[in-house]
Design a protein around this nucleic acid. Structure first.
Lengths: 342, 342
DNA sequence: CTGAAAGCGCTTACAG
DNA sequence: CTGAAAGCGCTTACAG
């Protein structure tokens, strides 16, 4: 149980034991850049195995000027949305032998800058960043010359950089269309803050569909709030009080959806019967509610995967090529038929 | 937009510009181990700022033999349980200026070993590991002499090491007691695999309470399955068919709970009226269901926090001191009163 | 208070 | 096919 740090074998140990130079050891460890004779290779590999040698990636990183690690910055960690993106990121990075260094910017631009500075100090090879709402691209990030890709938002200055985001506009217009097709003419959208890019996109989607199907403006309604449970709850409350004609609701985030359902149940409104609901969100729990809620799914894991792909492109081919701007379409999950998947 | 990697300033650049030796630069950067004159300090700090120098943590890590990073290994990432633990871990590590290197062991012992080997190669200063169910402590981990702490499980060989886990036994007995106090005498527990340590603990908790309150064995029932939605669904189905006398259910995980609720709703059983339910789980969504479900919360975020604390103790004070074995008590969340928190 | 020098564990251009 | 040597960017014991 002693915690004495037994010193690990180094390339020098291997060389000594195998009776070669450290260069030769390195050549076999890296399969190059020089060839090594069969005998030496075997001798070296034997020793490597016997001493259970693992190369020191720190030393290698210093020498190669490549750490094989990516900085990942999210505005917070309490939101379950970000762990989902992370899952997608991790899936690819682990496969590609990259490390990620995760940071929480605590919803503050200052903290976000600290994270960037810190990660620069760690010598990450690239960044994946979900910007704080309304923030500008930090000078420190641009100046570094390190490639980065923006996920989930592309507002303001960020627009000029590689990014991957969701097709929020199409998602909401699809939701509305589904309801129209079911015969609804009086539909409400519950969405986030009025000024946020993502919310504007959602409202545009709502407009697209209501224009297309000539829904009467006075029979529809957009309610702004936050992407939160409270907003879902309060908005449903408002709708039931102020707009009794509304027969269907589109909820623009997972949290809003849970809040909305909660309030509908509390008011003993039977979902799908007295009030129809289409949810835009990502939580696997969402599809598990009963009665099943039709969900337009945010492919949030996929967003993480794509971000890594784009970033590794930038890092590995040093092409300062053209900007990549991916927009991921939503996935429609019919509440009822989806049940069988679980 | 050119991606030419502008070479970063090094300590040598700073020394040259400030007209001092690199030693002196290092002394001010580290506030020691030698004192530096006011003038030199100022000159150096000016240059540091002007060149926006950030120390190369890779080089520093190599020299200091300390990377300030912790390896974190989970058996999978699709389960939303692990991101919650991660959140707790990250909260502390970020504050303590540690990095984490996250790995997914894909529910395989072989992959788990690969992760350990890999992280050893990365020269992490310690490990936090949630072992694969039923796995033994990998020799490679013990032999490394690197400190580690086990989270969430403490079966088999793992028992001998620092760990932090949940008081699953107490959680379930508490759940049962709450139901007994409400007058229930015929209670079912829906839990995970019969052999797993965590499941055994839960069943023991169930026994504790039913013994204490002299519940008749033939009126109660324990249903084994997986910690999954399907198990929740199927078990409720079974109970309703085979044990019509049962008036209350304790669900032993979040996923089981969602499955159970889904099935109860589908069968049009009114929760709390025709069937009472106490859930053991962690998802914030859980408390948002309506009618509100009384929840025994798994303090899963706290588990992450504690794990880091213990590990940093081991790393920073090199005491090969006695084993730490923390067991975290559950938190009771009364469904109804909790509503106001959102 | 200051600095020259060794060294952390690697990679690789260079010479043989 | 092999190896001696320089160097990646730091820290720190040692000497002054």
């Amino acid at each position: 149980m002693s915690r004495l740090k037994k010193k690990r074998a180094t390339i020098t140990d291997i060389a000594r034991e195998a009776g070669t130079s450290i260069s030769t050891v390195s050549y076999v460890l890296n399969d190059g850049p020089k060839p090594v004779s069969k005998e030496n290779r075997k001798k070296i590999l034997d020793v490597v195995h016997r001493l259970s040698y693992t190369p020191d990636m720190v030393a290698r990183g210093l020498k190669r000027r490549r750490t094989m690690s990516l900085g990942v910055i999210f505005p917070d960690m309490t939101n379950t949305y970000f762990p989902e993106i992370l899952r997608g990121i991790l899936e690819i990075t682990q496969h590609e032998k990259y490390n990620i260094m995760l940071r929480n910017a605590s919803q503050s631009v200052a903290a976000q800058n600290d994270c960037i500075r810190d990660l620069l100090s760690q010598r990450v090879d690239g960044f994946i960043i979900r910007p704080i709402a309304g923030s500008q691209v930090p000078a420190i990030l641009c100046d570094s010359g390190i490639p980065f890709v923006v996920v989930d938002r592309s507002e303001r200055g960020w627009k000029r950089y590689d990014s991957v985001s969701l097709n929020n506009r199409k998602a909401i217009s699809t939701a509305v269309e589904m309801l129209v097709r079911e015969g609804h003419e009086s539909i409400a959208l519950i969405t986030g803050p009025r000024e946020t890019g993502t919310s504007i996109e959602r409202v545009n989607g709502f407009m697209d569909a209501s224009d297309l199907h000539r829904l009467r403006e006075d029979k529809c309604r957009v309610l702004y709030g936050k992407y939160s449970v409270e907003t879902g709850r309060d908005s449903v409350h408002t709708i039931l009080n102020e707009n009794p004609g509304i027969s269907a609701v589109v909820t623009a985030s997972t949290a809003i959806t849970f809040g909305a359902i909660q309030e509908l149940r509390r008011q003993e409104m039977r979902i799908s019967v007295e009030m129809s609901l289409v949810a835009y969100g990502y939580s696997k729990w969402l599809t598990l509610l009963f009665p099943p809620v039709t969900t337009i799914e945010q492919p949030v894991v996929e967003m993480g995967r794509r971000a890594v792909h784009i970033l590794l492109q930038c890092i590995e081919k040093e092409d300062s090529g053209s900007r990549v701007r991916e927009i991921i379409d939503p996935v429609i999950i019919d509440g009822v038929s989806h049940q069988s998947n679980f």
